[in-house]
Each structure stands twice: as structure tokens, then as C-alpha cells.
Design a protein around this nucleic acid. Structure first.
Lengths: 121, 121
DNA sequence: TTAAGATATTCTCATGAAAGAATATGTCAA
DNA sequence: TTGACATATTCTTTCATGAGAATATCTTAA
């Protein structure tokens, strides 16, 4: 089975450091045309266009044709998927006390649902 | 320049759906030994071991040898990097009003610092 | 020591993707 | 229409990676 494509999976799309850089740029400085991004990133133009293509494919950016240029704009809401996924783990770090509470919760949950799964150590 | 390695970059590590699945499992059900993960995931044992190897390389899981078994435990704090990065974008979505405010902030910031960057349309 | 069980490692294969160079497409101005 | 500019696409090469199969390593029990 092939890997998940970076053109369809948002997690793969943001796995590329340069694409993250592009997103940061669009966030901090608003919409930009390709040429500006090329200048700011110091990457060859085709590289930038290709990265933008991936970001567009997953909906992380949108384009508006403005005459000769194309203006790319961040579509930040798309990152909600990632934020939500990551946020769900937030409860698993923090203080030792938190962890003890969580363990107790997990275990009572397991008892309630008749758990019988192998547990470590 | 080569791609960023999934063994060093946490974003690449979580780009793999099965690795995310493993993390979710370890979160929801606590530490597990490899055999349990194999059973729960329905993947061949070497595949699981390899994914665990990647997760371990970036610090997302830790291992404790327990006799014949190895117990893998989630190290959720490592996801803080991802959470923080994603959270920084949260302000860019939401209501239209929010966006208008943000734009105003960005623009006044730009004026203040003598900005002269190309802007879209 | 030997055997069995649990897990990791190695190897091969196929795929996807990024970099780089070249070129195509599209748009405006003259 | 022609030419200049902005951007996208194509092609090749290189490399990382995941799957799969086989095997090695380590640990405990007999």
C-alpha cells in the first residue's frame, strides 16, 4: 500500500518544512503573490509554485487571479483538523498528578466496559 | 537537499496514518507491549516494530523492557511542538470580524515598521 | 543448553516526492 | 500581434520510505 499522498492528507502536506514556512509567511504577512514568496523564501520560483500547488490541493491556501499575478491566501481553518487531533493529547502531558488522574479514569473506564486487553508490565 | 527525515522531524513522523493510530491507541488505552499493538492494529509485527522505531526516534514514545516484552508508552509532551505551531494559526480563522481586526493589526504593524512588501490585489 | 516466544533488524521492491533545469502557459503593455 | 513578465507544468534524477518476507536477537522456561 502506498504512502498517504501529501496532496490529499493535510498531515503530509505540512510535513514539509518549506510548506510550513510558506504558511507562516502567509499568516504573519497576509496574502502574497508568488513572486513575493519567491523573494522572501529564497527558493526558485518553480519550487514555490509546486509547494503552493500541494497546499492548494489540501485547501490550506486559496488563489485569486489578479491580473498577471496570483495572490495566495492562507485558509487557516483547514488546520483545525491538526489542532483538534493534537489537542486531544494535551491531557496526557503536564503534571504527574494529572497523569495519575488520567490513569484512574482510563482504568475505571476499562472496568466499566469489561476490558480484557493486554496491558504492559 | 534531501527531504526531512521522519526519524528526526516530528511533523513527518505523524504524517503516517498508522503512526497516528498507534499514538491514539497508546493515549486512550495506556502503555502496551508490541504484541498487543499488533493484535489491535491488525498489522504484521515487523511493521509495528518499525513504526514504533520511528516514533521512538522522535521521542513520541518511550520503551521499557519488561522481561520478554517491551512496553511502549506515549510521551505526549513531544506533541507540544505541533500543538504550539498549529495553535498559532488559530487566530487566523473564525469570524469575518476577527479577520478584519487581524488585518488591521497586521497593517498598522507594517506601517509602524516601515513595511514595503508586495501585497495581493 | 535447548526450545519457544517476543521483538527487532535486514533486505528487496515499488512508490512517491522533492530538487533542478527547461519549457509551456497566460496576461498585460505597446 | 509582439514582447516582457509572472506563474505553472513537465521531465529527469535522486532519495526516503513503507510493505513484505526472511531472519536475527534477546529472554524466559524446561
Amino acid at each position: 500500500m502506498p504512502r498517504s499522498a501529501s496532496t490529499t492528507d493535510i498531515f503530509s502536506a505540512i510535513a514539509e518544512p518549506r510548506r510550513r514556512e510558506i504558511l507562516e509567511l502567509l499568516a504573519k504577512r497576509g496574502p502574497h503573490q508568488v513572486g513575493s514568496l519567491v523573494a522572501l523564501l529564497g527558493l526558485p520560483q518553480p519550487a514555490v509554485s509546486k509547494h503552493l500547488g500541494v497546499l492548494r490541493a489540501v485547501g490550506l491556501v486559496s488563489v485569486i487571479k489578479s491580473g498577471q499575478h496570483r495572490v495566495y491566501r492562507l485558509e487557516a481553518e483547514e488546520l483545525k483538523t491538526v489542532l483538534d487531533w493534537t489537542k486531544a493529547f494535551e491531557q496526557y502531558w503536564g503534571s504527574q498528578l494529572d497523569r495519575i488522574k488520567q490513569r484512574a479514569e482510563r482504568e475505571s473506564e476499562r472496568r466499566r466496559s469489561g476490558g480484557s486487553h493486554a496491558r504492559g508490565a
